[in-house]
């Protein structure tokens, strides 16, 4: 048991020993809600972005009443989605958490706090992701949409096979950033008693009135989490970019078969090839 003269590090060691498990569980909960919330948020954002990027008169140039009705319906849904994005980006997540959690109770629905946490992070993140992914979709040049339509691919096929793979690669840094934001900002969910890291810290700090030491420990844990996640994301980005060179295939009798070409020597190799 520490005394009044115990040093800062003495307290840290004591608190880690006493509350280590508690912090670990809190870390687990933080990671759980941040990861699943970001994943669901990504899916929500993807759907919203696809619907918002659908033009009212897609590939079929047919003029018909049915097409007009579909166009009007699409526009109505697009308006609703725009409102969703505005509301969730325009209010703090801590307020959203309280309104949704207690609002649901008002309506007679008592949510499990973990479920509530994931739900709130998901729809909050979804609103941000929708805008990020929309930007990603527009970063793929329009010509590729047109080329895909010109060979008869539907809007959905174009999106899933041509546009989204490139859009997602382009926005990966922003998606990673959302995950990091969620790891940190899930701390606001302590207002609805989600047992994440900050919430556990609050109870540990109160027990001995050692606020500085406890929150110092917590800060270090958050920092380790976010640094690790950034590293992993950087690695995934590099993986997705693939190799920067390719292999020229020739006939087996050809001595020039299987030449590895990089962007730099491509033209030289082609000259040899054409000789």
């Amino acid at each position: 048991m520490p005394t009044a003269s115990t040093s800062f590090f003495g307290w840290v060691a004591f608190l880690l020993q006493k509350y280590g498990m508690l912090f670990l569980r809190g870390t687990g909960m933080t990671l759980l809600v941040a990861l699943t919330g970001t994943a669901f948020g990504f899916l929500i954002g993807l759907l919203v972005a696809i619907v918002r990027a659908t033009s009212p008169m897609p590939t079929l140039g047919r003029r018909s009443a049915a097409a007009a009705v579909r166009g009007a319906l699409l526009r109505a849904v697009q308006l609703l989605l725009a409102a969703y994005i505005q509301v969730f980006r325009g209010t703090p997540m801590i307020v959203q958490a309280v309104v949704i959690y207690y609002g649901a109770q008002y309506a007679g629905m008592y949510m499990d706090t973990t479920f509530a946490a994931i739900f709130i992070i998901s729809i909050n993140t979804g609103a941000y992701m929708a805008e990020i992914i929309r930007g990603g979709i527009f970063s793929v040049d329009k010509g590729q949409f047109e080329a895909a339509h010109a060979i008869g691919m539907t809007h959905w096929q174009t999106m899933t096979t041509v546009v989204l793979p490139q859009a997602i690669r382009n926005i990966l840094p922003s998606v990673g950033n959302e995950l990091i934001v969620n790891i940190k900002d899930s701390s606001v969910l302590n207002v609805i008693s989600v047992s994440e890291l900050f919430f556990q810290a609050k109870s540990a700090a109160g027990a001995y009135y050692r606020y500085f030491e406890v929150y110092f420990i917590i800060a270090v844990i958050y920092l380790i989490l976010t640094l690790t996640v950034s590293r992993i994301l950087r690695f995934i980005e590099q993986k997705m970019d693939g190799p920067d060179n390719y292999v020229i295939h020739g006939s087996q009798s050809d001595s020039r078969a299987e030449i590895v070409v990089s962007r730099e020597n491509a033209e030289e190799v082609e000259k040899r090839w054409n000789q």
Binding site: D141, G143, Q144, E146, A147, A150, T161, Q166, R169
Partner: peptide, 12 residues
């Protein structure tokens, strides 16, 4: 079919 000035190959 259609062939464009800017090629428009699928980058991925």
């Amino acid at each position: 079919g259609m062939v464009f000035q800017q090629f428009n190959l699928f980058g991925n």
